[in-house]
Structure formats: structure tokens, C-alpha cells
């Protein structure tokens, strides 16, 4: 087993899993029916991606575990998702801002991963990219509508941006795992990831009349398993059934 390869897949998988779970919390609580449906649809795409990615990670591990084992039976320090995706939903604007910052990154990542030398990753990326483009279209339009909307909506989504901006830098986090993946051709060149992401983000924020915060405090740790307090609560809810009734299925 190549630990870097497993970690690399877990990072992408856990982003999908945790953000998918966060969005599913909106089910029945959306501000309007259409958005309730939209957020749960996006959650479904993300959890579908997580299913494929986690079973791939389990295969690479070769310890006889399944994707479900990885989803439901790891401890918080073993999750590799970005801090951004575990942040609470807040109001609808906060959820759309979190989604937009993530979608803008994910679209570029999946575009590149289509040429990964790991054929399973390439296949999942090709499939997921088609979905992610829709997500980006949806989240960017809401950021613009709310930012360039009423005084109230503008103030609130600007506040969301101020709150979430500290987590954006982690999108570009790299370490020895990425170096090894690049050397083996599993991770294609991503040196212009930040530039591409900034192009999208700046363009949308300009339309949305939003200002990027000048306070450049950066918070990271998720990729190494160092999470904010929020992940524990997510896992408590997500893992409850499997922990309480081991091996249950429905």
C-alpha cells in the first residue's frame, strides 16, 4: 500500500463527504422549495462522488475495508477534508459562499485530474466534473444575486465572505503527499490552480460588488487531520447509527 496515494484520495473523498453532509442538513429547511431541492441534489452528487472515491481508497488500502467503513468508522483526526467544507451552514448566503469558494476550486481540480495516471481517479474526475460545473453555475449566480441585491443581502453575504475567507488559502495546501503524487503522474500539474481560481473568484465578486477582506489571517489543518470543533459534531450525527448498531444496513 502506498500511504500517500491513499491520503491523496481521502482528501478529495472527504471534501465531498463532509460538504455533502453539510448540504443535506438543509433538507426540509431551505429558504424556498427550489433551493431546498437544489441543495439536496448537490448533496447527492457529492455523496455519490464520495462513495466512488472512498471505495477506491479502501481498495488501495487493501485491508479488506469498504468505502462505508471509511465513511462511518474513522475518528475525526483521520478525516482529511478542508476546514472550509466543515464550517456550519449559517444562513443561505453563508452556505452559497462556502459552496462557491469550493466549487471554483473543485472545477479546476477535476478538469486536471481527468488526466491522472490513476485510471479510477481519472474516471471519477471526468464524471464529477460534469456535476461540479452545474454546482459552480448555481453557487456563483447566488453569490452575485445576493451580493448585488438588497442592502441587507449584500451586508450579509459580505459578512459570510469575511468569515470564510480565512479558510480559502487551504484550497492550495500542498505537502509531501502532493509531491509524491506529482512524481508518479497521479496528480497532474496544478501550479496555476490559485491563479485560475482567483480569476473566477475575482470576476464573480466584481459582479457581486463584494470586497475580498484585507485581513489575511489564514487557517489550515484539515489536510493533516487537524480540524475545527465542528467536525466532531458532524461525525457524531453521521456515525451514530453505525456506532450504535455495528454493521447495520438498510
Amino acid at each position: 500500500m502506498n500511504q500517500a496515494h491513499v491520503d491523496f484520495v481521502l482528501r478529495i473523498a472527504d471534501d465531498s463527504l463532509i460538504l455533502g453532509h453539510r448540504l443535506s442538513e438543509w433538507c426540509g429547511h431551505g429558504p424556498v422549495l427550489e433551493e431546498d431541492i437544489a441543495m439536496t441534489n448537490i448533496a447527492l452528487d457529492l455523496i455519490g462522488q464520495a462513495t466512488s472515491l472512498l471505495s477506491h481508497a479502501a481498495t488501495l488500502q487493501g485491508e479488506g475495508k469498504t468505502g462505508d467503513d471509511l465513511a462511518f468508522l474513522r475518528f475525526d483526526r483521520e478525516y482529511r477534508n478542508l476546514l472550509l467544507v466543515e464550517q456550519p451552514n449559517g444562513d443561505f448566503g453563508m452556505t452559497m459562499m462556502r459552496q462557491f469558494l469550493f466549487d471554483a476550486y473543485r472545477t479546476i481540480l477535476f478538469e486536471r485530474l481527468q488526466s491522472s495516471s490513476d485510471e479510477m481517479i481519472a474516471a471519477i474526475a471526468e464524471k464529477s466534473l460534469k456535476e461540479t460545473k452545474y454546482h459552480l453555475k448555481h453557487s456563483s449566480e447566488w453569490v452575485i444575486r445576493l451580493g448585488d441585491g438588497t442592502e441587507e443581502s449584500h451586508a450579509r453575504i459580505q459578512e459570510s465572505l469575511n468569515t470564510l475567507w480565512r479558510y480559502a488559502n487551504e484550497l492550495f495546501y500542498t505537502d509531501a503527499v502532493d509531491d509524491e503524487m506529482r512524481n508518479t503522474g497521479i496528480l497532474p500539474d496544478l501550479s496555476d490552480l490559485r491563479q485560475q481560481w482567483e480569476n473566477t473568484v475575482n470576476h464573480v465578486f466584481q459582479e457581486a460588488t463584494l470586497t475580498i477582506p484585507t485581513n489575511n489571517w489564514k487557517q489550515e489543518g484539515g489536510r493533516k487531520g487537524m480540524h475545527s470543533e465542528h467536525l466532531g459534531y458532524i461525525l457524531a450525527e453521521m456515525q451514530y447509527m453505525q456506532r450504535a448498531y455495528p454493521n447495520m444496513e438498510w
Binding site: E34, I37, A38, N41, I42, L44, E131, Y134, K137, H138
Partner: peptide, 9 residues
């Protein structure tokens, strides 16, 4: 268009 997302994915 009412919504980019409908009754199924």
C-alpha cells in the same frame, strides 16, 4: 428557468 435543479439530479 425556475431552478437549475429539479425533482431528480
Amino acid at each position: 428557468m425556475i431552478s437549475l435543479f429539479g425533482s431528480t439530479a
